[in-house]
Nucleic acid binder design. Structure first.
Lengths: 210, 210
DNA sequence: TAGATTGTTAATCGATTAACAATC
DNA sequence: TAGATTGTTAATCGATTAACAATC
């Protein structure tokens, strides 16, 4: 019965969540769709439509309670639980992700980082040690793993993802410059930095004319 | 006269570019929209519509020449020139970006990295040294800077961006978890990793039902 | 109660897909 | 020439915006 939520809506939810968090930090406890729309540069109509995909969180004549709304969006986004994350590839980016404490605060716990490079194996990264990629199957068997972050070369990423999927890890945060091509149950969120940079260069090369 | 290209199209261009690069690596020199559509999992119609925003790059009865098409998309994306990039914030992410050689290959040259932390200033990052943020105005004056990558805390990012904009740097690759709010001529490409992770968790928490 | 603002339906706008004539 | 495939118009689909009755 639940009607499918469009991906356009889902893309916007984290931004609502961010703005609500900031309002809460400022100890603002209620907000109208109109006021929020001004701050976020979207239409009030869109905010109300988006939120009403999930239920009526507001109150006529009053607006939305910031704390409650933040909580509801958090639940929708699945932020009311913890996720165990492993990182595949201990290069610069993998290490940066491992060291980023912000993720931990939001419930994404990096529990291990793997590499194939003998020079890296055993080295410390944050308060972890780099594991040998060869130990991956055993690790996944013995530990609960919710998300695999792929920060390895594009040539390796699809096969490692496929193996992980077979081992029972079905959610991927993919930083490799390639598509993963996994069975449809798998969940993939791509972060293609090179593509992001190309969009930036497009907008530099093609300025909007006045 | 040029009709405005929708951002949906622009978002797809880098992916076309990536697939064409791979075809070229495989020494495939022609491809039809239908064959490409199969590989990329999009409709052939969409590919032809997208490309025809920019001109007729194909040939009836033949398809598209891979090398020529890649070159044309590269030009559209502004990849036929070099960009001087500076990085603001020498944390884990800033260092990872500075060390990532892939960008250099595509014409994005990281020429300097800045931080405010005395312990980091002067330290080597790749083959650069971390500059004192206080030297930023002088650096920008004396060197050409096309893009500023912002990998600093969200509390600092908007003000640093505003200063850079005033100094004449108008393109921002923003990794800080905040919106920048700059004059409309400025070009901003956001990479909000926390939001990306939330979309992943949404899709874990709300599996598509069969 | 009067005023404010939501929730929701209807109207508009834009993007995607389908179809096919043009043409290599 | 015949076959293939583009470029482009038309049809469909979906997302955004507008409007307003419901209601706090």
């Amino acid at each position: 019965m639940d009607k499918k939520i469009s991906s356009a809506v889902i893309k916007r939810l984290p931004r609502y969540y961010r703005y609500l968090s900031e309002l809460l930090d400022q100890e603002i406890d209620r907000i109208s769709s109109q006021e929020l729309s001004k701050q976020m540069n979207v239409t009030a109509s869109q905010i109300r439509q988006d939120l009403n995909n999930f239920g009526g969180f507001g109150q006529q004549g009053y607006g939305y309670n910031v704390e409650i709304l933040k909580g509801e969006i958090g639940k929708i986004l699945g932020l009311d639980r913890q996720y165990q994350v492993i990182i595949l590839g201990a290069g610069n980016l993998g290490q940066a992700l491992a060291n980023y404490v912000g993720f931990e605060r939001r419930g994404f716990i990096v529990s291990a980082i793997f590499d194939i490079d003998k020079k890296k194996i055993g080295q410390p990264v944050g308060n972890l040690k780099v594991y040998d990629m060869a130990e991956l199957p055993q690790y996944v068997e013995e530990n609960s793993v919710d998300i695999a972050a792929l920060t390895l070369p594009k040539a390796k990423a699809p096969e490692v993802a496929k193996e992980l999927d077979k081992m029972g890890v079905h959610a991927f945060w993919n930083f490799a410059a390639t598509d993963l091509d996994l069975p449809s149950e798998a969940v993939v969120e791509n972060v293609h930095l090179a593509e992001s940079l190309m969009r930036l260069s497009y907008n530099i090369a093609n300025p909007v004319k006045k």
